[in-house]
Design a protein around this nucleic acid. Structure first.
Lengths: 203, 203, 203, 203
DNA sequence: CGGTAATCGAGACGGTACGTCATGTCTTACA
DNA sequence: TGTAAGACATGACGTACCGTCTCGATTACCG
């Protein structure tokens, strides 16, 4: 990786780390309060105490800035998918913290904008998937593969569909907001995904 | 129904049905081609051969017009959820046409905008859920209740979670676009939702 | 005059005299309060308790309506130019009532619009001159010709220039509003026009 | 003068002088061709090769822009009121160039709009009087005071009324357009103002 | 007395300009 | 070279007004 190599000393004034942080912080704050569409770049610049040109020097569009801002804001406490000994335990350990973070702030508004943007701008789509979508999905995939290794699941199980069921159900409530994403709901989703509707009765 | 009562004769020039239809048609056409954000009201007005003021007289915002346009465009051929004799058959009969329609045109772009708007405007949220979300969800719920009546599922089954699994998975692929919504995928989602990951092996 | 001939009995519903009067009254009232540009036809129609179509049936444009409205509002008490025995007396008898009327209400705002409109619309220009400008100018001309007959002025006097001096000075203050049109000012204008600046000292 | 002091270096991108000039030029050109009411801001912007927002940044309303445009367009060659030795000569030297300029282009249309606007907007009224009306009036006043100093006129002469007679007559023909403002007319107006109708016979 | 014809109130409509706002670029001077 | 300040082009926004139109209801006369 280029980053690992010792950087050649840059010419001219170095980038202001203070500016970078205050931009990301101001952007995240405003975005999660009023949504991407209701916040202007001038406003973000003013809140960050920064010139608009400085923002555009480092982020090409408003959406890319928003993506970066959300990436640094939306950090879950867990680092590695913990090995609890069972697939069910691993999934709950993975998804419950996600649900808790998602409950604290209105992420859905911004994510809707991301989805829209991703469907009309391939560059943004790549960036969005690489930073916000795939990492979480891959950690869940690891958990499934570990379970297969344990013999909890047959090798032929369709992991992709299982992942879409799990994250699909969670995102569905997040985006459409027709019901809250309680810890109980996370448990129900995991159980029904693992054992099916027929095998998991209510209450 | 109040509508069945003879309408009192309207005063003034009646609303132009021709204008209404050409507006909705032009809006749907442009929306599904380029997405809500890339289409201007001036453009819709011009394509519809109509004044912009006429549009704003009947639809308060661009989003409400888009919702109405999509509502009339996105009509599935099926009228009643067909009774195929089994829950699995009923669900496939319901979801496969949905998947086919969704594949024909880029609905995802517009739905992303709807979700964003719904999270910042309660009036729009109600309208969106009432017209595009709930009707389909309720038809699927009917199918589940029929299965309980048949004894295919125990009475205590958590239908809400099952619905979120089914539609969640489909919407997930629709919105994030990480994989295509093939008929095979619909089958897999139905099977895994009914019998669980453990009970449904790949291939 | 065609109007003097006995009208052939009209077919259909006759024109509503009540509507005509309330339109002119409402128009005059609003015009003199806020000026032509700040009053809309919808507003006039509403104030008059009348449909907008009814207005446009009888007056082609907003300006023509305004002209008519002002014509009926701006009626001076005097009918014929009185013969006071001297040119000075006749002119004062003519111009002082004009000045008094003009002081009561803000005619200038509307007249400015008339002038602008007249310079871009020949039809309106004719109408404006025939109804609001020429009648007053011709009455003053009569007074001058009477004075020539009396021998007060030589026959070769340039009446047109004299009229422009008199009405020009009055309209100048009316339109530019840099000073009030007092009775004293009217007297000064008449005296200086008759005897010149050199022959009329201040105070 | 404050302007003579060295300006503190301005922050940010400096105002484009080129844009300012092309705006004023385009506005003057269009205004004098078709009148204020028939020219749109979009059109001015397009002709000037400039954004509409740039215009609104520097001029609050269309009328203020028009006033500025006319101010720079309507510049008379004479700088100081020339001293010809007699009041009559001075006035002719002052008014004949004015008449010539006024004949070349249709100023009347725009001035009518200014008058209307001035009667409903005090801020504009001040601006209008300060820039287009008073300067010319004050130069004529200087001429009159010089004549009093020479002993051509008695000290008690009412200069204000004389100015209203002179400019009133000229503006009257300009605005109402009932006759042309020939050089001969200017002479007649000056002579009748100085010596009165009785003292100046036609031809 | 019933038909014919013009008027009226109500209000929808096409067209056009308005003045505002936001994005992203550019141009200065300063650090 | 990076940054603050802020002017700029572009283009959509939603509003307002003008003058036209299309209805049903009204009010005269004419046969």
């Amino acid at each position: 990786m280029a980053d690992a190599v010792a950087d050649p000393p840059r010419r001219g004034r170095p980038r202001s780390e203070k500016a970078r942080e205050s931009i990301l912080h101001a952007a995240a704050e405003l975005l999660l309060t009023r949504g991407l569409g209701a916040v202007s770049m001038d406003e973000i610049a003013e809140h960050a105490g920064v010139s608009k040109a400085t923002i555009y020097r480092w982020w090409g569009t408003k959406e890319l800035l928003a993506l970066d801002a959300l990436y640094y804001e939306w950090t879950e406490p867990t680092v590695d998918p913990p090995d609890t000994g069972s697939l069910r335990g691993d999934l709950l350990a993975l998804l419950r913290p996600w649900a808790r973070v998602v409950r604290t702030r209105p992420y859905a508004t911004v994510i809707g904008t991301f989805i829209t943007k991703a469907h009309t701008d391939p560059v943004f789509a790549t960036e969005y998937v690489d930073r916000l979508v795939n990492p979480r999905r891959e950690r869940a995939r690891t958990v499934f593969e570990r379970a297969i290794g344990r013999g909890e699941l047959p090798a032929g199980v369709n992991v992709d569909v299982a992942l879409d069921l799990l994250y699909g159900a969670l995102y569905h409530r997040l985006l459409h907001g027709h019901a809250r994403i309680t810890d109980r709901f996370v448990t129900d989703v995991v159980d029904m995904t693992l054992h099916g509707a027929a095998g998991s009765t209510h209450r």
